[in-house]
Computed example of a mutant assay.
Amino acid sequence: MLVGAEAPDTGVWHEETVDVDQFLLVLVSGLASGAVYGLMGLGLVIIYRATDVVNFALASLATIGLYAALTLYDRGLPLILAAGAAIVVTAAVGLAARETVIRPLAHGELLSALVMTMAVSLIAESVISTIWGDQPQLFPSLVDGSVSFGDAAIPTQSLLTIGVAAVAMALVAYLFGRTTIGSAMRAVAESADTAQILGLGTQRIARVAWALGLGLGALAAILYAPRAGLLPTVLSAPLFRAFAGIFLGGLTSMYGAVIGGLTVGVLDNLAASYVSAGYRDTFVFSFTIVVLLIRPQGLFGVRAFQRV
């Protein structure tokens, strides 16, 4: 080798850099997906803790809000206002469904309430298909462009999704930890009978919990729709991954729903990128099953003993 001659470029350093950039893209995409699952899971847990109802209709009701938002946007309403309208529409339709078919059920009819939410979901999808049709539609991104990091171009929409979800989750934590209505909701979650003895309006608290949970579901839908498009069943897959997240984190734990959703999102994207896209759900749900076999109450849940 001649003195002063440059060593040949083997490409190893460049390959390692590309691998790191690729991993960063996968990680950010996973966190963005997990933020959506975490928001939906948080909404499901809030409703469940306040009313003992597992709301399978949350995704379909949020989809109604998405279609309403797109209609308003196409008619000239600014996107941010249309997004706000989606949250309001979702909460309003969801509360109407609760008052009509869920509340009349006798106390403790958990299976009947579960079946009712499934029925509401099917009805909502049918209404969407009748009014807006079944053809795929594009939903506009809240922001465009990307942020460069090395050779990686991270979509700004993904970063916005993570940021908005983090702020929403922090506000929910503040609501439950620092406000009167949050304390009342926690009291109802611990014992509805005790809360009623203390003079707390359980039905009013239940309505607030449903509105909040549905609003979080609608926010998750708004953040998810720009990259997935719009179909009557567009939120079916995120809903089941959100359920995987809340079972992984613990059905009664709000923090568990968030951490579980983020975990599912990251694992889902890692499996799709480094194993096979066809096995992403198999990998995620297998991991969830293993955790539940070891710790049935989830990572952050509390073990409860019930007679069955």
Rank of each mutant, 00 (worst) to 15 (best):
V290H: 00
L175V: 12
G301K: 12
T202N: 05
G201C: 00
P226V: 15
F283T: 14
I181N: 00
Y279A: 11
S253E: 08
R241D: 15
I205L: 03
L198M: 14
A189Q: 05
L198Q: 12
S253C: 08
N269V: 03
G213D: 07
V266A: 04
L292H: 03
V258L: 11
T252H: 04
F243Y: 13
T252S: 13
I222R: 09
W210H: 04
Y274F: 14
V266L: 09
F247G: 00
V284F: 05
W210R: 02
P232E: 10
A218G: 07
G249H: 02
R186Q: 14
A277F: 08
T202D: 04
R280H: 07
L299W: 04
P296K: 13
T194E: 03
G201L: 00
L248E: 00
G265T: 05
S286G: 15
G256W: 06
I205H: 02
Q203A: 12
A187E: 06
S276A: 13
F300V: 06
Y174P: 03
L235K: 12
Y174D: 13
R227W: 00
Y274T: 07
R207W: 01
T282H: 08
P238S: 10
A237F: 14
A228N: 12
R204C: 00
P232T: 14
G177P: 05
A211F: 01
L292T: 01
F176Y: 14
L293P: 06
L293S: 11
T288S: 05
A211W: 00
Q203Y: 05
I222K: 09
N269M: 09
F243N: 07
A192C: 05
A225K: 14
A237S: 14
V172R: 02
M254A: 09
F287S: 14
Q196C: 01
I259P: 01
Y274N: 08
G249Y: 03
Y274A: 08
G261I: 02
F243G: 08
A225L: 08
G256M: 09
Q196N: 13
D268E: 15
V264T: 09
A209S: 11
Y279G: 01
R295G: 07
L200S: 05
G265F: 10
T282F: 13
